[in-house]
Design a protein around this nucleic acid. Structure first.
Lengths: 199, 199
DNA sequence: CTCAACTCGGAACGATCGTTCCAAGATAAT
DNA sequence: ATTATCTTGGAACGATCGTTCCGAGTTGAG
């Protein structure tokens, strides 16, 4: 039997996620990864392969651990519009304060960088977008059934809008946008979605 | 009197804009710039300074030549809502087809990259955002005066939303989003803005 | 205890990074 | 024509890039 790994690959990958998330792939060197994880190059390459593979793995981990849980919470929430409001509140909080303040969203960042020319990365981006759209749609359908949306509101179309709005929040938050400004915009948008007859 | 430049700095900077726009600052080497412009390193450094200065100059040129004319057209258009619709149509066209298809917006890209840690870059991003917001607001005020917006529509707040929506369009278009999908979302959004009594 | 199987530390690879430097060439005022 | 001033080509700088390789160390089954 061979020797066994002297480190936790999962913990190491999490450190790599934070590195790529904050700085992007192009601005992050292997030396940065070595320093941040404490691993040496041999273990890195043996476990994860080269830099591109490592970035893909980190991006997948980000989506699985950070995006998808939020999407699930949104889609499965039975409250409708308040669920969407909570989703955006949590998003803005995470983007503007705490440990990851001003890091933006790793997926949004990947959209804008040279990373997206990798087909594997592109697939993750597309899937992420579809999941976000679908979660928004589910919440809107719930909202429509529960309390009724404003007349002429198609859930599918509004799901598209809210998804794009989330990308906008992610982008602007990275450049230091004020959390209250973002919240005000989101709140007003959601208000125009609700039934005019609602309380 | 000294010798005079053997090249056109403006044309060179335009080539640099396209380079940084498409690939981002981190993925673009000085050698790429040398190759694309046809200049040699000496002329480059003597004219523009180092890479960071060059990137800032390119970003400023992009905003001046690509963004601000569109903002002015939007703000000065007397038609109101159709002006906003045209703005987005032009945006989506430019992002999804033609010479710059799938390049996204250089300003949006700068938001998501490591470029934005440079205070000079950050200032351009903030100014760009303020100009976009202000142009949207002007068009919305015009629209409100002309034909009336839907009840409860505050131009300032909707200007914020539409600005964030534009960033979303820029991001997703870089990852290959379908132009018609984007158009449908924008059209539906603008429709919910118009007065319900309008034709 | 042996040994095959694997990990780890670290040196080293060629390539490319951004930048600097200098000699040669070009220009226009004197 | 001379000269001061700037531009240009191109070599060269040290640093860092991503990646590979090998010897030494560690493990557990036989």
């Amino acid at each position: 039997m061979p020797d066994i790994k002297h480190f936790d690959p999962d913990a190491a990958l999490e450190a790599v996620v934070r590195l790529f998330w904050r700085q992007g792939a192009a601005s992050t060197g292997i030396q940065d990864v070595v320093t941040a994880t404490g691993l040496n190059r041999s273990s890195l390459y043996a476990t994860f392969g080269g830099k591109q593979e490592l970035y893909r793995a980190a991006l997948r981990r980000y989506v699985e651990q950070r995006s998808e849980p939020a999407f699930r919470r949104l889609a499965e929430d039975e409250r409708g519009l308040p669920a969407i409001a909570d989703f955006f509140t949590g998003l803005i909080d995470a983007r503007c304060s705490g440990e990851y303040a001003r890091w933006g969203c790793m997926v949004s960042n990947a959209h804008a960088g040279a990373e997206n020319s990798d087909p594997g990365v592109r697939a993750v981006l597309d899937r992420h977008h579809e999941q976000l759209r679908e979660a928004m749609n589910a919440a809107l359908v719930t909202a429509d059934a529960r309390e009724g949306l404003a007349p002429g509101c198609d859930p599918g179309t509004w799901a598209d809008l809210l998804a794009l709005l989330a990308y906008g929040v992610n982008l602007r938050s990275r450049a230091g946008a004020d959390a209250r400004d973002l919240s005000r915009t989101v709140t007003a948008t959601l208000a125009s979605l609700g039934s005019p007859a609602a309380p």
